[in-house]
Amino acid sequence: MTTLAHDPSGGPFAIEAQALNIYYGSFRAVKDINLRFSTHKITALIGPSGCGKSTVLRAFNRMNDLIPISRTEGTVLFHGKNIYDADVDPVQVRRRVGMVFQKPNPFPKTIYENVAWGARINGFKGNKADMDALVEESLRDAAVWDDVKDKLFQSGLSLSGGQQQRLCIARAIATRPELILMDEPASALDPISTLRIEELIQDLKKNYTILIVTHNMQQAARASDYTAFFNMDTDRAGYLVEYGQTDQVFTSPKSEMTEQYITGRFG
């Protein structure tokens, strides 16, 4: 597991974790992760609760830095540079690695401002018309334009849960990241909304590399190109069990544990 065994695709990689260990205080939450993700593909991270898949995901845009007791060891290569090097500003990383969270969290501002704010702080140079266009296109790309086009200047919080989550996706893609991290983006939503988010993710694949954490086996099977299965070891640290093309992982898993998990025998 310390080698780069999980390398299902080859081809250009968007981001790569090497010997990644993450600690919360003295507790090791994730151990020895080696993973790399192909560009313009969707990779699902699955596994039972507490196996550290969210922690791994948040390692890719240094979100774990926000937890004061957390500590990250190992390397995450992004464009050949370890993002955990001392000279790397996490803001630089997050600028290029967008994120969508489990619970929809639009800003308590207008829908327009929700999308425009990220562009504005990141030095978007366009004029008012460009900004309007960017907002519209982002909302269209996030498949929420038709729902909100008549109320752009109402609060983002006035939308339904599914709409809010798509607004958050629009907000993320408005800054044109290279990578989008999604932490169970549909877990708080009803089945219809979930389906729409999944379709949306498929569309987004054309332009973005997407990493998605999910608890939902069907979702992983339906929506992803690759699947990484994590499990919790006896020391309660999460580790990578299996990583491969989604079809292969779901139809002929190499590990017995993977099979048991995806068939619902534990987890």
């Binding site: 926000l66 803001v91 994120m99 969290n105 308590p108 990220g118 702080i121 800054t175």
Partner: peptide
Amino acid sequence: PSSLREASLGLGATKWQTIWNHVVPN
């Protein structure tokens, strides 16, 4: 809520931008 801070930071905002634009107004 910390989700607001995460949302802001996740967009590439600096800590100060997050505080000034989201934390203090809320």
